[in-house]
Amino acid sequence: MCTAFAADLKQFNGELDHVHLLVHYPPKVQLSKLVNSLKGVSARLLRREYDTHVRRYLWGGHFWSGSYFAGSCGGAPLTVVQRYIERQQRPVD
């Protein structure tokens, strides 16, 4: 999906109930459309591959919640943000 939006996924990690993504995207991209596409495609792929396991973690039949948090890191060095994401726990297998 990042390629379709001319975006670059720089870092990924997560915790038990959420993920962290560091994405560089062009200013013309609507962030809400990028996030919704990432959530939609990943949910379909994960449900196709791991449906039996994933089914017990769904929120009202949905893989992802309808909300997300986005923050700008324009003032922080990229290495600091990447290090923060790297130190998060990995999502549950």
Results as ranks from 00 to 15, higher is better:
G14C: 06
E49W: 10
P26K: 07
R48T: 15
K10W: 08
L31E: 01
T3D: 13
V23A: 03
N13D: 07
S42I: 05
A43G: 00
S65A: 14
S37F: 08
A76W: 01
S32H: 10
L58G: 02
L45G: 01
S72F: 01
T79E: 09
R56E: 13
V54M: 06
H24Y: 03
S65W: 04
A7C: 14
L38G: 05
T3V: 14
Y57D: 13
L38C: 12
L9H: 00
T79H: 03
F69Q: 06
Q30E: 14
L9Q: 00
V80A: 13
H20G: 04
L21I: 12
V54Q: 06
E15I: 00
L31M: 12
V92R: 11
R83A: 13
Q89W: 11
L9G: 01
R47A: 07
Q89Y: 12
K28A: 08
C2S: 15
G61C: 03
C73R: 09
G75T: 14
R83V: 04
V23C: 04
V41Y: 09
L78Y: 03
R90A: 08
W64F: 00
R83H: 11
G14N: 08
E15S: 04
R55N: 11
H24Q: 09
N36C: 07
S67H: 10
R44F: 11
H53F: 10
N13P: 04
S72G: 13
G71E: 03
Y25Q: 12
T52W: 12
A70I: 07
E15L: 07
S72T: 15
L38V: 15
T52R: 15
E49R: 15
L78N: 03
E86P: 00
L34M: 09
L58E: 04
G14A: 04
V19A: 14
S65Y: 07
Y57K: 10
R56P: 01
A70N: 01
G61T: 05
A43Y: 03
R55F: 04
A76Q: 05
G61E: 01
C73A: 13
F5A: 09
Q88N: 13
M1W: 01
L31I: 14
F69W: 11
M1K: 03
P91A: 08
P27M: 10
F5N: 02
L78H: 02
M1S: 01
E49P: 02
G14T: 11
Q11S: 10
K10R: 12
L45V: 09
